[in-house]
């Protein structure tokens, strides 16, 4: 008896329920899909490590006050620029603040920016893209012209100009990043919509009397979502880097709040002798970006329904 044969023998219990060829309810049908997707995801070790990193980031941000060892804002000039030790795990900065606690609290700022930017650029880009692709004609030409214009702006420079005009701060940093972030999603969604638009299931929906809004929302949007989510996850790294860049230039979150970019900025004066001041926040940015990228690559596999 071959191993494959054993594999195919009907499994019992919840596992059998989750792998059923013939689901007996809508809920089970969905559960089977989720289970098979999760199994594909788990088969990719890089994706799992990315997922764990992102999970760690979420946990850190949520539990920051409890896992930080010191007050991230408490200065102590007698303790300035101390190397990593048992007392200060990641050392202290030029004002004697505990770097570990500041990195832990800084994750909140990073996550806030990532979250706000995603919920701005994802929906805006998707909406512009599917409307453009589905209706075509002058709607398409106008929307794509706007997209092209926005795409032509140098991203960081526009964000700088924007923050310079509106004043530094996290909200303005978010708006500045989002302003130039949506066009790739519009392009992606438009290209996908164009490929679905003439397909027979859309024609079938039209001949059943479905309104354009229904077709866009219930037929085309669910098909464009997976690639947008993957793209968004892969874009997170870029968003984090821009946010850190703005922080580095003093245009993001304002001191004394802990923010990874501005922490690197303060550390650059001591880069040679007190390497930990700039390097450890930099490592936090690096690991986080890597985590999102791994996760994004893993999601590509998950969202292909015909691979099962």
């Amino acid at each position: 008896m071959s191993a494959a044969h054993i594999d195919r023998a009907p499994a019992s219990g919840w596992r059998g329920w989750l792998t059923a060829e013939q689901p007996e309810s809508v809920f089970q049908g969905r559960a089977v899909q989720v289970y098979l997707s999760a199994r594909r995801f788990m088969a990719n070790p890089l994706a799992v490590s990315g997922f764990l990193i992102v999970l760690l980031l979420l946990f850190t941000a949520a539990a920051a006050p409890w896992i930080a060892t010191h007050d991230p804002l408490a200065t102590n000039l007698e303790m300035r620029l101390l190397p990593p030790s048992a007392e200060h795990w990641f050392g202290t900065d030029h004002l004697g603040r505990d770097i570990y606690s500041r990195i832990v609290h800084g994750s909140r700022v990073t996550l806030t920016i990532v979250f706000l930017v995603s919920i701005l650029i994802g929906p805006v880009g998707l909406a512009a893209g599917i409307v453009s692709g589905y209706f075509g004609g002058w709607v398409d030409r106008t929307l794509m012209m706007v997209t092209d214009i926005v795409m032509a702006f140098p991203r960081l420079v526009l964000a700088l100009a924007f923050v310079a005009v509106l004043g530094p701060g996290i909200e303005n940093a978010v708006i500045a990043v989002a302003l130039t972030g949506w066009p790739p999603y519009a392009r992606l969604a438009r290209a996908e919509t164009l490929s679905f638009r003439r397909r027979e299931f859309i024609q079938a929906a039209r001949s059943q009397g479905a309104s354009p809004l229904r077709i866009l929302g219930l037929y085309i949007l669910p098909l464009c979502m997976p690639s947008a989510i993957v793209r968004l996850t892969l874009d997170m790294a870029g968003i984090i880097l821009i946010a850190a860049g703005l922080g580095f230039l003093g245009l993001g979150m304002q001191p004394p709040t802990a923010e990874w970019g501005s922490m690197i900025a303060t550390g650059r004066d001591y880069l040679i002798d007190q390497w930990w001041v700039a390097t450890l926040p930099g490592a936090a940015i690096f690991v986080t970006c890597l985590g999102f990228n791994f996760l994004g690559d893993g999601l590509v596999d998950v969202f292909d329904p015909r691979q099962s």
Binding site: R199, E200, Q203, A204, A205
Partner: peptide, 15 residues
């Protein structure tokens, strides 16, 4: 009026 399309692989929404 209703219509049945040519290709049953394309006329049902995949998701």
């Amino acid at each position: 009026v209703q219509m049945v399309f040519q290709d049953p692989y394309a006329s049902l929404h995949p998701r």
